[in-house]
């Protein structure tokens, strides 16, 4: 097979997102997320994709009618560290048992059955994208019948995460091979959340392909990465930018968020913008 040239990434237009939660439901269904009696215990909930409510109402200056709310679908941001050629997401190097790794397509994987549940990767993730199975996964009644046979169910006591629906990619790859296509780069796919989005706010594709929609969106003026203020420095103060990336790794996620709203850019861009 040819060498993998893909570098999967995602762009999410927050101005198009209505916060309907369809992406989260599609994700949970496709990835066999358990459903517990009390899922109002959000801090222990098991979900790969979380539609977060972002608001400026904890800002002292935000009073009626200036209070604003937006919805942000947040999944694993598939970080790659400072060097995309030698990716080093914050969660991978910390795992004591090599249960997590970065694939040649840039997707951060997790082997459920290798994980010992130490949660060190979870502690090191700045996006709270990794979740732990605090309870034994349960599927009541008819939920069992709708489970996805392509996705294995993790045991209690393991860390799980979004893998950009790699089970769908594997299925598409197998289909291509069955049709006699052996070039791995000819295989494309769409994760469950992107397929389900009713407003077309989510776009998935290959960031290495200069003609792809996701690459075009990632280069838009409206695009920014979650909690990644160092990006701004690259333009405003290249010297300081170089100094900082020489001092430490930055997550460099492969998920881009697009918005024209200034307050939202400031809120999700980071704690305080570098100037």
């Amino acid at each position: 097979m040819a060498e993998m040239k893909r570098r999967w990434g995602m762009a999410i237009d927050l101005d198009k997102c209505t916060g309907c939660g369809t992406c989260q439901i599609a994700c949970s269904q496709s990835n066999n997320m358990p459903i517990f009696q009390d899922d109002s215990d959000i801090a222990k909930r098991v979900t790969f994709l979380d539609v977060m409510q972002v608001t400026n109402d904890n800002d002292e200056n935000a009073e009626y009618p200036d209070v604003k709310v937006a919805y942000l679908p947040k999944m694993c941001q598939q970080c790659e560290g400072n060097d995309p050629e030698n990716p080093s997401p914050p969660c991978v190097s910390v795992c004591p048992v090599v249960a997590t790794d970065v694939g040649d397509d840039g997707v951060v994987s997790q082997i459920w059955s290798r994980c010992i549940g130490c949660r060190y990767c979870q502690a090191s993730c700045p996006y709270e994208a990794r979740v732990f199975n605090w309870w034994k996964p349960e599927y009541e009644g008819t939920f069992k019948e709708s489970m996805n046979p392509d996705r294995s169910v993790a045991s209690r006591g393991t860390v799980v995460k979004c893998t950009f629906c790699d089970h769908i990619w594997k299925k598409e790859r197998d289909k291509a091979i069955a049709n006699g296509v052996t070039d791995i780069n000819a295989v494309t796919y769409t994760p469950a959340c992107v397929s389900a989005c009713p407003t077309g706010a989510m776009v998935f594709g290959d960031l290495n392909d200069p003609d792809s929609e996701v690459t075009r969106l990632s280069k838009s003026d409206r695009a920014l990465r979650l909690l990644h203020p160092i990006d701004k420095l690259r333009e405003t103060d290249p010297e300081l930018y170089k100094k900082r990336i020489a001092m430490k790794n930055y997550p460099n996620p492969k998920v881009y968020y697009l918005t024209s709203q200034k307050w939202l850019k400031e809120m999700i861009g980071g704690y305080k913008h570098s100037s």
């Binding site: 010992i116 130490c118 209690r156 393991t158």
Partner: peptide
């Protein structure tokens, strides 16, 4: 740890990386 029965994985699948010093 969430999986005490897998505690021995730390010895059998250690995250050493390529050098002498461990990665994790």
């Amino acid at each position: 740890i969430g999986q005490p029965l897998r505690a021995w994985f730390g010895y059998t699948y250690p995250n050493w990386g390529s050098g002498l010093l461990p990665t994790s």
